[in-house]
Every structure is written in structure tokens, then in C-alpha cells.
Design a protein around this nucleic acid. Structure first.
Lengths: 325, 325
DNA sequence: ATGAAAGCGCTAACAC
DNA sequence: GTGTTAGCGCTTTCAT
């Protein structure tokens, strides 16, 4: 920067201004400076800039795992939204462990991220306390809560599960099973399902849990177990489409007609849900939009002078009825 | 840090040493300092540290899109490998555009990443030149080349395509089609296929290209086109499993028996390839391992004094023969 | 509209 | 083993 300033015969501040507040520099000098920058191939050091300005232009995000299409989609949306405003994404995976999430978050704080995007609303209490204390802008995602750390973008997993229960009950299904990841959000969907069925006075509910990340084979294997345990099962709700597709394939293998002898409902509305045969009834969730909305919420929060924009954004969900249920 | 030093009655350097080179500090004083750190809840500012040490502890990575399971898997492996050594991942998406890749890379350079992981070996010449000039450690992935910028971790897409061609020819297939993404690596697979078929004196090859990122529906739609254009098609190679599964569903829809009336070969060996019915013959590629290997290569490069470890790592591929071909 | 001075919080190099 | 002295490359604040 020193060199550029000399080359353009101005002070270093002026070079800095040309880069950060171009309007505050007379067009003529601006031109000279830009020319010098180009000629010298100068690339400003944003680390030094961050230290001086106390803004890094980096947002930290933590997801349980990138190998889940839905979280990858959320990060896709987030990265793209941030990139439009020159922010960069620092990404970490918690592997579904709250302690790893906390460690990553602490690391991100040390790296002076301008904000944090977390998955879920359940975190280590020490982390929540810390985040509140340092007043770091935070967006929690994929769920809703009445007590967010700062801001939350998601939908009600409980309501979604309930909607599935209503749909199955209305379709006359009475022997219902659930296959889901052993994980907070999936369990909320299960609770929604249970709530709905209980209200209708349903008898038992057969549940199989798998360790996340859910694999397609888990869906097949667990459906097998469910079917052996309860041969007259007539419907199964899977906590995500990956499991549901696995269940669907298992039915094909066993020549158990879907939806006639078994209804299958998935969750996520991945592309495969509408492509498979029979097509999959599922709950469409705004995976990518969660990332986009989280990004917008943060950008607003970071560029607005007053910081009073903490809020809850309910992006909703939609039951997509297709052939499988 | 000032406060911690005062609290522990030592100089700031000592605090710094306790954090970065604990062995160089006497155990007793180390204890005192750690206690002071704990009591004050001090979190070191890694931005300032980066500026002073000229090492950021951040690796930049650029993929075309996170919504492709294979790139997400590579990033999963990379992030996990780096995290083990305390490095952090800064992630960007190029949306399959070389210009966006370059812009992201420039941004990462400005943010002083310690190294860069790129997808593919084809980049803007200006970027390649710049990367070489500043001698930034770089790993190119998902392909091989005789002229890497620095280091390359991947496999031969051409050879993989060729292996598929051999397999199909040996199985007696003579009317072969290709459905692939309009993108460098997919085209290399196509060229491998063509090379193989030409050697055997095959006639035409029906090709359908789709704009990336490939969606399952593209596979269905393009197979439909291919079948109309060439009703006696007896095999199709898809440049990834997503397209292949789409093609498979299309066959189910048309009641065209797989593999009897049409052989389908995919690419990637996603979990669904072994789960679908019929199971998918495909080329298994080390998606996650590419990330892990890239991470290890970088860690070695960044922690080793001499910097003579630039190299090419061929992780290979494997043709997995299943029911579909 | 531009500049001069004073840091941002840390680590490198060299003493002691 | 520990401390002293100088920055790292930029932005801030305040003056002109």
C-alpha cells in the first residue's frame, strides 16, 4: 500500500479510501490511485484490514455434516448470499456433537468472524452464554424457538410431523411406523406425529432410530425390522427422504406394494422424491432458503447501524402429496 | 493479552508462548499463565496473530457447487482433516464458472489463506500465473495433469471412461449412448468412452449433454431423447450416478428392462447406486478421500520446513459391476 | 478532499 | 526461560 501511495503521489489513507469509500475521493485522484494499484498488481491485505477495522468480513457456519444434501443446500444458499456482498464463509462440521460445535464456535470467535450461523437451537449452555455475552450476531437454523440466542430461521419440525400424522390418519392408515435419525430435529418430527396420532386415539407407534448421518441403507434395514416386528404395518414416516427412498427400495425388493400395502412419507423433498417410482409423498422444507434467509438476516444486521433486528423467521413447510402415501 | 500478562506477572510474549510453544515455558509459569487466562476468559485474537506471524491457519477451497454430493463429500473429508490440525476451511462456490473461481481465489489470497484447494486442473491463465508467482501452496483435485500448479490429487477421468467402454463392449453392447454434464471432467469421461469404442470399431455414439449441476430429472429427460433418436440403444453411460438414477427411473416408467434391453452405467458410486433396483453398475471414485488426501498433502507442505513436496497423487477408481450393466 | 499520527493485538528477533 | 524492542499492513480519528 505504501508503494501504491508513492506511485500515485498520495497518502496511504487515500489508497485505503479509494478501496473502501470511493465516494469520498475526488474522481481524478481516484483514477490515479486505481491506475497505480493496477500497475503494481496490489492486493490489499484483508487480515491487516480486519485487525484495524475490527470487522473480518467472514461469517462462520457450523452444520452437523456436509454429506447431508439438505445441510449442503443450506450452505450453498448461504455462501451464495454472502458472496454477493463480499463476505466469505468459514465452514465447520460438528458431526452431530454439541461439544464439537462449541469448539468450532470458539475457534471461529477467535478468528473474529462477524457472525455465526448454527444448526439447531440446542447448544452447550456455556456456548449460549458466551455468545450472548459477547453479543455476536447469531442465526440459529432449521428449527424455531421462543428463546433464540439472537435470531432464528427455520420451521416447526413438530408441526411438520403432525401434518404427516394427520395425512396418514385421514388416508385410513392405522398401523404406523417411524424411521428417523437419532437426532433433535428428527425426534421433534416424531413427537409431532405422536401428538397427532394420540389425538385420534391410535394404538402403538413402532419406532426405529438410526445414528446420523442417515444413509439410504438404514432406511432399508430399519423398514425390514419394522415389518418383521409388525407385519400389518400400513404406513411409515421417515424423518428424511434418504431413509424414505431406502424404505421404498426395500418394499420393491419384498414386493410389498406402495402405497397399497404400505404408505411411505419422507421429509425434505429432495429431487429424488419426485423422480422415484412411485413418487414420494414428503414434506418440502426450504433447505436452501434457510441459508439465503440466514444470510440476508445477517447482512441486514451487520450493515444496519441500530442492531435491533433480532427476530424469528418461520419459513414454513409444505406437505407434498404424491403417489407413495 | 496485556491483562493476562499483568495478572500472571509476566511479559506478553510469555503468554504468547504458553499458547503457541508451551514447551518453551517453564511448567510453573505456564500453570500461572493458564490460570490467569482461564480466570479472565481470555480468547486470543487470531487475526492479530495471523498478521504478525503471516500464517492464518485458514485453507481456502473452491468447488463448483456444494449441492453435488461428490463435492460436498470432498469438502467433508477436507474440513475434517484440517480440523484435526486446527486449520479452518474457507469455502467458495464457483458455479462452474472459471471467472468466479478466479474472483474467489483472489479474495482468498487477499484474506491470506495459507493454501488453496481447487476443483479441476483447468483455470483462468491469469489465476494460474498469479498462484505460481506468489508460490501459494495449491492442490488441484478431481483430475490429474502432467502440469499441476503445485500439487494434484485425483484420478484419470479419461481412463475411467475408457474402462466403462471396455466393459460395455465386452458385454456385447453395440448401440451406446452417453448422458453427461457439460463440464470438463464429464467430457473427459466421454472421451475415454469414445476412445475405447473407436478402437473396437464401433459406429456412432449418441451424446446428450446437460448443464451442470446435473439433476436427476435431466437423466430421465435425456434418456427419453436418446431413446427416441435411437430406439435400439442398448447401453448408456451417465457421467454421474444422479443422471444414471434418473435414466433408470425413466426405464422403469417406460417398462424398458434394465439391463436386458438397456444397460446403464453410472459414475461416483453414491450410496443410492448400490441401493436402487436394479443396483447400478458404476465407477467408484474416492470423493471423500480426495479431500482427505488434499488435506494431508497441504498439512505436510505447511508444516515441513523444506517445501519440496509438490506431487501428483493418483487415487484411482474402480469399476463396480452390479445389476444394471 | 486529503493527510498525519496513533494504534488494532499479536509474534519475531534478538537480548538477558 | 523470559523480557525488550519492533514491527505485521491496514484503518481510525482528527486536523487541515
Amino acid at each position: 500500500m505504501e508503494d501504491v501511495a508513492r506511485e500515485a503521489k498520495v497518502a496511504r489513507v487515500t489508497v485505503s479510501r479509494v478501496l473502501n469509500e470511493p465516494d469520498k475521493v475526488k474522481p481524478t485522484t481516484r483514477k490515479v490511485v486505481l491506475e497505480a494499484i493496477r500497475r503494481l498488481g496490489y492486493v490489499p491485505d484483508r487480515v491487516a484490514g480486519s485487525l484495524a477495522s475490527r470487522r473480518s468480513g467472514v461469517i462462520g457456519a457450523i452444520v452437523p455434516s456436509l454429506s447431508n444434501a439438505w445441510f449442503a443446500d443450506t450452505m450453498d444458499g448461504l455462501a451464495e448470499t454472502l458472496a454477493e456482498s463480499g463476505f466469505q464463509l468459514m465452514l465447520g462440521q460438528s458431526r452431530y456433537r454439541l461439544e464439537e460445535e462449541e469448539a468450532l464456535a470458539e475457534s471461529f470467535i477467535g478468528r473474529r468472524v462477524d457472525a455465526l450461523v448454527l444448526t439447531g437451537v440446542h447448544h452447550m449452555p456455556s456456548l449460549v452464554q458466551r455468545l450472548r455475552q459477547i453479543k455476536l450476531p447469531v442465526v440459529e437454523t432449521w428449527e424455531l424457538t421462543t428463546d433464540p440466542i439472537d435470531c432464528v430461521v427455520g420451521f416447526s419440525n413438530f408441526s411438520a410431523g403432525k401434518a404427516v400424522g394427520e395425512h396418514l390418519w385421514r388416508s385410513g392408515r392405522r398401523h404406523i411406523g417411524f424411521i428417523g435419525a437419532h437426532e433433535k430435529r428428527a425426534v421433534q418430527r416424531l413427537e409431532g406425529l405422536q401428538d397427532s396420532l394420540q389425538k385420534h386415539g391410535a394404538s402403538e407407534l413402532n419406532v426405529e432410530l438410526v445414528e446420523p448421518p442417515s444413509a439410504i441403507h438404514d432406511g432399508s434395514a430399519k423398514l425390514g425390522l419394522l415389518l418383521e416386528r409388525c407385519p400389518d404395518l400400513d404406513a411409515v414416516f421417515c424423518s428424511n427422504d434418504t431413509l424414505a427412498v431406502g424404505a421404498l427400495f426395500e418394499c420393491q425388493k419384498r414386493h410389498r406394494a406402495v402405497p397399497n400395502r404400505l404408505a411411505i412419507v419422507g421429509f425434505s423433498d429432495l429431487p429424488i422424491a419426485s423422480a422415484c417410482i412411485p413418487s414420494l409423498t414428503t414434506v418440502r422444507v426450504p433447505a436452501r432458503n434457510i441459508g439465503v434467509a440466514a444470510g440476508h438476516a445477517l447482512l441486514k444486521r451487520l450493515t444496519t447501524p441500530n442492531e435491533a433486528s433480532a427476530q424469528a423467521i418461520d419459513l414454513g413447510f409444505e406437505l407434498i402429496t404424491r403417489e407413495s402415501a
